[in-house]
Design a protein around this nucleic acid. Sequence first.
DNA 1: CTGAAAGCGCTTACAG
DNA 2: CTGAAAGCGCTTACAG
Lengths: 320, 320
Amino acid sequence: MTTPTRRSTAADVAAAAGVSRSTVSFVLNATPGQTISDAVRQRVRAEAARLGYRPHAHARALVSGASRTVLVPLPEWPVEYVLRQILDEAEATLDDAGYTLVTSGRHHSGNARPLWETLQPDIVLPIERLAAEEAAAIRELGIRVVEFDSDETEYVESVDAQVAHLVDRGHRVLAYASTTVPGMGRMSDARIARARRACADAGVRLQDAVVEESTARFVVREWRRAGVTGVASFNDDTAALILGAAIREGLRVPSELAVIGHDDSPIARLLVPSLSSIRFDTTGLGRHLAALALAAAAGGPPPTAQRPPTHARVVHREST
Amino acid sequence: MTTPTRRSTAADVAAAAGVSRSTVSFVLNATPGQTISDAVRQRVRAEAARLGYRPHAHARALVSGASRTVLVPLPEWPVEYVLRQILDEAEATLDDAGYTLVTSGRHHSGNARPLWETLQPDIVLPIERLAAEEAAAIRELGIRVVEFDSDETEYVESVDAQVAHLVDRGHRVLAYASTTVPGMGRMSDARIARARRACADAGVRLQDAVVEESTARFVVREWRRAGVTGVASFNDDTAALILGAAIREGLRVPSELAVIGHDDSPIARLLVPSLSSIRFDTTGLGRHLAALALAAAAGGPPPTAQRPPTHARVVHREST
DNA sequence: CTGAAAGCGCTTACAG
DNA sequence: CTGAAAGCGCTTACAG
């Protein structure tokens, strides 16, 4: 760790090039409508390069009123594979448009100010809907908040795909395995509700249970007793728990118990038997997020009220 | 998405409270050495609250020269479980000290400026050592760069623990399973080298191979032929690949082939048989990172040149 | 064709 | 006890 050197400013460049600070700004920002000789432009650029000049972001943001930054507050629950993939794609797309995506962690113990105050992003795009007061507080900072038009209940079509897959493969008594990760309760409830409806529509029965490591074998035994032959899971980790319990119970998978996960995370391919799962169009979703942010940054309304393209589809492997 | 309202400034608060802007600043920042009547203080605070005044971060950073922000550029390779845990802890610790930790993604396609320019953090703390020119460029921005005193070769004692565990359990021909994730090559090489040394010291033989999904069974067959009975893996995903291949080959684990992973990621408990692995003191490492950043922010040298407490230790499960 | 000046929102010596 | 003023580093009308 060495001591930082004093950074060079536009004034330094101006002095070195023998021009005014405005000229430096005009040249370096290629401001249109200015008539500056090529010789001067060359000189300014050369001096800027020589001095390693980089405009000070805070000063620029202060005067321009925009930081070209998008803040994504992460949800309370641990961020899973799918969301990471989506955010990676959103980040790349925003980068192409000259915007930087920053995610904020789930700690806000309170000593540091909230990241939107520290960062002063142009846009805040929360994954989970913010509390109304919180959103209002952010807006009072002059920041635009992008709220999704849809709540969790619209993102559960993947459950239909799980149920349809199991029904197609001849299962008539199903179970839904949900999880207890704190903060995911609402999402879990929405998915169970959707599973119930899908099963009712298909005329099959549905059990459900919260599955944890310590109870997985017990749950599996109960389900077997109730005639369950196919299980849809909240995510791949929960499915792995079911799969493990089934194996330890000496059940054959999928002939005695079929299991389908959700998210198609890396673990799905690593399990034996490999896990059928639900894959999302994370690229499409990521670009959709980026488009929402960019539209908000441009000051307009969201691009389309259309639902993003989830394209949830079954990846069929050995477990079903 | 609603249009943002104009945010209120210190000038608004001053006008509303009938005082000067300096007084507002003194009151709100509790600047010591000022003698301001309680009545005035009350009034300023009340108006600030009523107007929802929040100091503009960029203006404040511009004048104070500090943003109370720590930037952690993430490595090129996909961030695994252990690093996330470490960063979560570092984030919480920094938050307690009033600093915000921001991580920068691995995209820098180049249209957006590097995050350190956009963010102007006080400290940059890269996980992987930065290229010298890059570090120099950051320092020219007046930002302190914290370089670890140690390179990867010092973080491989966990390999000793893997080898010792297998040797303790009676294995005399070992194998090291490495991975091909781009960017992790150096780390992988360092660990294999360490495994070789540990095996030489223990007087046991060592094979090694890069393991991928498509080649895992082949590799396992080869190893069996060479008499290998214990495998140490670069990470838990690679171990899962070996485990899966062993099961598909009809081998009994651990009696015919023992496997130990690395990182103790969630998958280790989900596999059947459950995977022995190496757990780190992520809490200690996270706090160590935070301490390094804080020491740098305070302007001093790093707190201690001591190595961080990795405390790598074996978590013994069914696979060994 | 180029520079002096104002101003973004704040903090902090310095006068009263 | 409190306010006027300078200045952080930039951008951008506005004069020459």
